[in-house]
Amino acid sequence: MFKSHKSWALLQLFLFIIILFPFIMMLLFSFFTGWSWPHLFPQTLNVSAWSYLFSGNAGVQEAITNSLVIAFSATAVNLLLALPAAHALAQHTFAGKKIVEALLFAPLIIPPFVAMMGLQITLIQWNLTDTRLGVTIAHLVPTFPYLLRPLYTSFTTLASEWNAQARLLGASRLQRFWYVSLPHLMPGILAGVMLSLLVSFSQYLITLLIGGGAIKTLPLILFPYITSGDLRMGATFSILFTAVTLSILFIVEWCLKRFYKHRHTVPM
């Protein structure tokens, strides 16, 4: 396929443009105004969208805090649930395994908002609606399968002989987990944590159903700008969202990689 070098180069250029063009346009639209017909690009430099964003009136700080707290709490809880579950699924055979698997991955197929609509009355009775705790609990369902899947794969490739050898050498249960299992699982944990954070960051409907509009996250304040066709604020919020998401992912990756590297230097 793509035999000639020229068509290959063209294809690559086309892909670069298709991916990066939206981001360039967003930057342009957040910093410039005056997109009168038939100019291709907005004409006048104007940073008022950004100053509004940081003025404290836009509720940006609250939204970022909410998004981060909800995403990290839901991911942390899910990690605690998914680690033993992935271990059991990958390393044991037992009756009913297929059913358990189907149950745990079901939120990928059956949309979680359906369950949240049903659960809403109960959550009202428990005073969990319109609270950050309630929204965090609601985010557990859509994020869990995304965290479980990479962990499951990691545990599948973790050979039980390694643990057996470590035990033979006198390593305790905790030491075996820390020195043998964890380094092997790290890439899977990393992938799962990132996916879970991403899925939580982009939730809209579930946040709205359980948070009742009282708990504002980044998607909740971004949506009105898209529906009302406010291109400039839409662009500014989209950049903010992209920046927050990408920086969180870079920080998580950096921290875990550092940890991973450090662990490799530990004499075993």
Binding site: H92, K97, L103, P112, G118, L119
Partner: peptide
Amino acid sequence: NSKPYLFLLPAITMIFVLFVMGLGEG
């Protein structure tokens, strides 16, 4: 024999309470 079930219990409980029960109430 019960070890895998024990390991799965927290995850199953969460999915059951929030997802299965939500669907059931729905």
